[in-house]
Design a protein around this nucleic acid. Sequence first.
DNA 1: ATAATACTTAACATGATGGTTAACTATAGC
DNA 2: GCTATAGTTAACCATCATGTTAAGTATTAT
Lengths: 130, 130
Amino acid sequence: MLSIMPERTSEELDLLFGALADATRRGIVEQLAVGEATVTELAAPYSISLPAISRHLKVLERASIITRSQQGRWRSAQLSPTSLASAATWLSQHERLWAERFDRLDDHLARLASVQPTLTETESQTPTKS
Amino acid sequence: MLSIMPERTSEELDLLFGALADATRRGIVEQLAVGEATVTELAAPYSISLPAISRHLKVLERASIITRSQQGRWRSAQLSPTSLASAATWLSQHERLWAERFDRLDDHLARLASVQPTLTETESQTPTKS
DNA sequence: ATAATACTTAACATGATGGTTAACTATAGC
DNA sequence: GCTATAGTTAACCATCATGTTAAGTATTAT
């Protein structure tokens, strides 16, 4: 398999998936997907304290999901280029072993690539036995 | 036949990503990708106790990553059809916002799709764990 | 019936998480 | 210099996670 992404160690994957296993942190990632933001901006949607946000950011940074920079007294966070892809790669590698399921994901991704989809559609759940 | 995954609640994503944030559990998923296996078989590669494995399986089950069945006194685990796709979907939806990175992943997936193996065998258990 | 096998559940120790408030650092503005 | 602003670090607390061993359940084998 062509290596686009560097091999992640097990610990790196622990950090990566672990960082995503929290709603606040996923929210921050979503917010950062729109664009770079300061800590206070990132904290705004939540009712938790700034130190709590600060620590969430540290978790995301340790997982290489974000990078941080400072200008003046403002520190901004931005999404790291390849991070989430590592998680996606792990998933796709294991999904690959279920052919139809993989196809479905691939189809899904292909559509996402082309246009902005309307995200509600009845789905046909076909339980496939291995 | 676009099958967008069902919307996952935040808690479901917590469980999903949280379950993958552990090397032993990812190992179990990898093992199950080869085929269904019993608890003892799944435990074999690891130096931890059976109760520990048993609990890991419960975590994976709660995250809907696996399902379990019982025949006689043997309980086997099998990968659940749509589970990992939910995580992959979340990732792809957020990756989408970085065009080139997404394209790279999409390309990657497309290549995987073309070399797709058909792995529909029964019980070939090979405890090769690293 | 008894014993072995394949697990699970219970009880417990320990460390990691996620939140808090209080105190600290550093820059910006007056 | 003084004060407000932006953020981090420290200390603490409650809860969850992950491992252990011991005991329990259910099925297979003798």
